[in-house]
Design a protein around this nucleic acid. Structure first.
Lengths: 347, 347
DNA sequence: GTGAAAGCGCTAACAT
DNA sequence: ATGTTAGCGCTTTCAC
């Protein structure tokens, strides 16, 4: 019974091209071509090979192919945090794009730690990914990526951008988004508007904050340093920010948040104080994550007109197809989705 | 200027072992051993090799090594959804464990689609991961993993379990957790307790629901089919569940939720109706995600006594070290963390 | 349309 | 302590 595995699809030792070739009395070259569906090999042979391969449970050995072709068919993805739902969605998009191009995703996260990022990138290199999707750590310069770029590994910057790097970029048109958010709140009648979240040195926060300042100035409103609450775009930042702001002698009545997660934190902070987001304090998020519409009240946020994850994937693949093309910079325009958290100030 | 790259660390063509060997007038075998820090090669030689390798910007080629050794140094991770913060945290743990063992993580998600999982696993195989961490799709049987197990790829089941598969498992002691949650609510005086979320066929939900039923029965309470609201453990499930339950002629006063995310959805549903979680309806989550303590009120939940992510990683690595060892089954006991969402029923 | 042969960069016997 | 050699499983000229 247990010996009767002559025609079983797969046993323990992996089947190789060579085995299929000798079984069928053809060369490995023919098998190789046939399995990849080459027109160069006769239809009949092709099918014979494919059938036998299936029967034997042949599995392509990518290590061997990679060694030979110097293409790994993997893309490396390096982001700070997958716990942020926005990045989780982004990653999902990148993965979908990779899979549809027949590639696998090597994932690494660095938790906003530059050194960890550098170690990660060094390790990635050994695996020879065909390309890298990177949301660079704060402080990363083009020099820090030299080891990758020198060997010709294409890099697509996701979300954050190293200014002047010349590398492909996919992310948000941060300035436009923050301006929309700020002007929306001004239009509702708010005069003291805070900014919650974001850290110096990340292009996303630098750009969003600048646009916020400019929008205030453009409407003749003062920019008050006390109304900035910095921090990573995490829930606790929003939680702490709202407390800090409401304890001010002259508290703001609204805040532009660096991202949705920060805004959710602020909403929770309001609840804790027995206040209602929207009615008692206006908030605008950024990213329009799935959660934004589910919260109560719904979070006003900025939605990208294209999904950045898949676009990042496609950008990388088009770069692989044409390494010589000029830098691709896809700053995706956001649109404001108005929900319950943005209401006029009371009285 | 730009020609002056004689001693630059890395140019465009990758440096190989062979190059280092001939530069130094030693054999590739020596270089190979030296770079891996083998004691077999003289200290002086070892250092000479390592120094020169660094100077030349040598990068280990894993494709070549993998082909030779039949170890890829990658582990594949396959889960349904990284958007769920619990799984995001899990993944982070697996990644940490992998990195500390010098391995990379290949990630794929299947979005609760069995066919997608199967395609993913088929693709994974080509990359020859040293092992697989899998949260199996509903309906997966041991037969569906045959292609992996036959080739000797060790699999660690994460969170969900295929009963009788004999494969290593790391997850929650679901029955114990759900019993704790249910008895806690009963102890508070609740008599009509619902169960929100979970789907038939996932070991996690099957086990949690069974324990919930048993706990009710053990306390002489009826098990009412109308108090089950099924669905993937996502926010919208909780949102829909609370609405469905509160519209009942005789609504429950509390619910055990399949996971934290479902509970958050239920909390949002309560807010939408102008009700306060805890005071107007009691909720218990499962997983004790970071968010649980940040919400208002804090979500009562079940916390694992060990972090499952790292444990899953370690389990896989210990399996790699000793393929013959008996099945490892790490059902992690949860403890109840009581917060504001679980209060006695009103009046 | 198919085959022969070389070789990608590494490791592991086995010599010396 | 170091070198020689073979070979992992593919792909790719280049013949025929």
């Amino acid at each position: 019974m247990s010996n009767d595995r002559r025609s079983e699809p797969s046993v323990t030792q992996p089947v190789t091209l060579q085995q299929i070739a000798s079984e069928l009395g053809v060369s490995t070259a023919t098998v190789s071509l046939a399995l990849r569906g080459s027109e160069a090999v006769a239809r009949a042979t092709r099918e014979r090979v494919q059938t036998r391969a299936r029967e034997l449970g042949y599995v392509y050995n990518r290590s061997a192919a990679s060694l030979r072709t110097a293409r790994s068919h993997m893309i490396a993805v390096c982001v700070h945090d997958i716990t942020n739902p926005y990045f989780a969605e982004l990653l999902k998009g990148v993965e979908r794009a990779a899979m549809s191009e027949g590639r696998m995703m090597l994932l690494g996260t660095y938790d906003e730690d530059f050194e960890r990022q550098q170690r990660l990138l060094a390790t990635f290199r050994e695996y020879r990914p065909d390309g890298l999707v990177l949301c660079p750590a704060v402080g990363t310069t083009i020099e820090d990526l030299r080891s990758l770029t020198d060997t010709g590994t294409p890099i697509v910057q996701l979300s954050r951008e190293i200014v002047g790097s010349g590398l492909d970029f996919v992310g948000s048109e941060d300035g436009a988004g923050a301006r929309l958010a700020t002007e929306h709140l001004i239009g509702l009648g708010h005069r003291r508007i805070a900014f919650f979240g974001g850290v110096d040195g990340a292009s996303t926060s630098d750009n969003r904050r600048r646009a916020y300042r400019q929008a205030l100035a453009a409407h003749g409103l003062p920019v008050d340093g006390a109304l900035f609450y910095s921090g990573w775009g995490r829930r606790e930042t929003g939680l702490l920010a709202i407390d800090a702001m409401l304890d001010l002698a002259e508290p703001p009545t609204a805040a532009v948040c660096f991202n949705d997660v920060t805004a959710f934190g602020a909403m929770l902070g309001l609840y804790r104080r027995g206040m209602t987001p929207g009615r008692d304090f206006a908030l605008v998020g950024y990213d329009d994550t799935l959660e934004a519409s589910q919260w109560f009240p719904g979070l006003t946020s900025l939605r990208h007109t294209f999904p950045p994850g898949p676009v990042a994937g496609e950008t990388l693949f088009s770069r692989l197809r044409d390494p010589g093309r000029p830098q691709q910079r896809r700053a995706i325009a956001p649109t404001l989705i108005v929900r319950g958290t943005s209401q006029p100030p009371k009285a």
